[in-house]
Amino acid sequence: MKKSRIIIITVLSVIVIAVTIGLMMYFKPHKDFADATPDYELTVAELIGAFASDEAAATATYVVDDKTVLVSGIVRETDTDSNGCAVIVLGQNGTEGSVCCTLTPDESTASITIRPGDPIRIQGQCTGMQELIEPQVIMIRCALPRK
């Protein structure tokens, strides 16, 4: 094989590989928190307590690197956001502090039977804690655990 042909084939292969990797990265899907194995399993009180005592440490542990967090507690209220996604707030009535979980659109239809007072386990992506209205840990892309 001629040397020039080898160079052309090598250059073309490198281009094809680079473009493929670039496209794969550009179109890579979001992490599926519904099917992921939880990295952390906590109660509502433990999760709120972690952010209340050291927000930076809790952010580094539960938020950075898109960890899957599974939280268990009692449903305080249910709502629907402007996208039609179910919002389930976990916490005790009369106690400050809650975990607000927004379900994915697919999971939202399955959540219609969830009522205040129900014990529940929800997993998803923890995005941090807001304290404007009350200390409230926010979880998005949530789903009911598969097992």
């Binding site: 550009y26 179109f27 979001h30 995005t127 807001q130 404007l132 926010i138 998005i140 892309r141």
Partner: peptide, 18 residues
């Protein structure tokens, strides 16, 4: 009027952009 939001709660169509 007071607002607060978490930056990490912004959802993008593409994971790479997020």
């Amino acid at each position: 009027l007071v607002f607060q939001l978490l930056i990490k709660s912004f959802k993008f169509e593409r994971a790479l952009m997020e």
